[in-house]
């Protein structure tokens, strides 16, 4: 075997199975062009699912959080941002003889 080493680009594959859902990361593949990556993506990772949309992104074009950035994700718990702090309201509404609002009944 002679000749030069073969080089490919790594493409990360994202797919959306539901029009209203997010694009989710599937896996990565080796390809020579964005078009080739797109042509290979579905049959590699999504053979058994109905697909609505696929994104392929050359990995070196993704800005990723490294170990330092991951440390920066640390946050204290902020319960005031969550509905769990307001659970007591349900009891109060029952005392007022009203059903507590839930996300489903609000809309």
């Amino acid at each position: 075997m002679d000749g030069e080493r073969l080089t490919f680009d790594v493409y990360e594959v994202f797919a959306q199975t539901d029009p209203l859902g997010p694009h989710q990361h599937q896996f990565s593949l080796l390809a020579s062009s964005p078009e080739m990556a797109m042509a290979l993506a579905q049959e590699n990772f999504l053979r058994r699912r109905e697909i609505y949309s696929i994104w392929v992104v050359r990995r070196d074009q993704i800005v990723k959080s490294g170990p330092k950035e991951r440390e920066r994700f640390y946050r204290l718990k902020k319960s005031y941002r969550l509905t769990e702090d307001y659970r007591y309201l349900a009891d109060k509404w029952r005392r007022y003889r009203q059903a507590p609002m839930t996300p489903e009944t609000m809309v």
């Binding site: 941002r81 509905t83 307001y86 309201l89 509404w93 839930t102």
Partner: peptide, 17 residues
């Protein structure tokens, strides 16, 4: 948006109560 509004309404209920 709607997911967050659920929290907002409870925040409002809490102030009003």
């Amino acid at each position: 948006i709607v997911e967050e509004e659920g929290f907002h309404i409870q925040h409002g209920e809490s102030i009003c109560m």
